[in-house]
């Protein structure tokens, strides 16, 4: 079988179980020590690793863009079984909107070179826009097959089944291509001891915008086309009612809904 190179794009995000916040600069607080590999990217890694394992000569490169701590995300990818890791880190990237992030990722994928398949998660659990996969595909001039609940690669063809709000679709394209996978696609593996030990010997390549030939003015806050102008924790709900059923809770619920004009 021909050599296949797969790049998995991952993101280091604040743990969704932690108290997430926007800072005084209205950017996501990313240095609270509660960062983790975006859970949905584990599905992307699992998909890539399964495809690679079914082949004789396939390699998986795990790629991230983010501040110093973000290296943890690619290290987790190496522990799960990825062969190589790339971390793009540059102060000028801070404040990027999704388009800026896509530009940096696209340049990094091109830097890796000869990529047959780009795999991403369905969304980052910090911003949850789901915009990145198609934006990245467009920048890389690749066909996009987003939101795979099922994914097969057969020879040079990739096929995806996806569940949308009102329909189910099957999409197909020739490699090279980009897919995003959902949390329905697979059950991600846990890094085992062997994987964790092997990852210690694997190199993480660190790159800057200059290494990638990306003009710093097109990314980061400078290149962003959107700007968060206000951010505040949502005030707690007021006038809450909590009761234990004593036989009439259903009646009281009905009365509450009527009183609140919700029926």
């Amino acid at each position: 079988m021909p050599r296949v190179r797969i790049v998995v794009c991952v993101k280091h995000v604040p743990d969704i179980q932690s108290e997430r916040a926007l800072g005084p600069d209205r950017r996501v607080v990313r240095d609270g020590g509660d960062g983790t590999l975006n859970e949905l990217d584990e599905n992307a890694l699992e998909a890539a690793l399964s495809i690679a394992e079914a082949r004789d000569d396939a390699e998986v490169v795990v790629l991230t863009v983010g501040p110093d701590d973000a290296v943890d995300a690619v290290r987790k990818g190496l522990q799960m079984g990825a062969d190589e890791a790339v971390h793009v880190v540059d102060d000028a990237i801070a404040g990027s909107d999704v388009i800026g992030t896509a530009r940096v990722l696209a340049a990094a994928v091109q830097h890796v070179g000869d990529v047959d398949l780009v795999v991403t998660g369905m969304a980052g659990l910090d911003g949850l826009t789901s915009l990145l996969p198609t934006a990245l595909a467009q920048l890389l001039d690749l066909p996009a097959l987003p939101l795979a609940a099922e994914l097969t690669v057969d020879g040079g063809t990739v096929r995806v089944r996806r569940n949308l709000d009102h329909a189910t679709e099957v999409l197909e394209a020739s490699l090279p291509a980009l897919v995003s996978v959902t949390d329905q696609a697979n059950e991600p593996r846990y890094p085992n001891f062997k994987g964790i030990m092997a990852a210690r010997k694997k190199q993480v390549t660190t790159l800057t915008l200059a290494d990638l030939g990306v003009d710093a003015s097109t990314v980061g806050a400078a290149g962003a086309r959107t700007e968060v102008v206000d951010a505040a924790a949502r005030p707690p709900r007021e006038n809450r009612v909590l009761l234990t059923d004593e036989g009439d809770a259903g009646l009281r619920l009905a009365a509450y809904l009527v009183e609140q004009k919700l029926v």
């Binding site: 909590l242 234990t244 809770a249 259903g250 009646l251 009527v258």
Partner: peptide, 26 residues
């Protein structure tokens, strides 16, 4: 319950049918 405006600690198999019947009656 931390985010509920109206919370009932109870058995959904009795509370829901009672609420549904009352809403239909009203």
């Amino acid at each position: 319950f931390e985010i509920a405006d109206f919370g009932v600690v109870g058995d959904l198999f009795t509370v829901l049918p009672q609420a549904a019947a009352e809403l239909r009656r009203l």
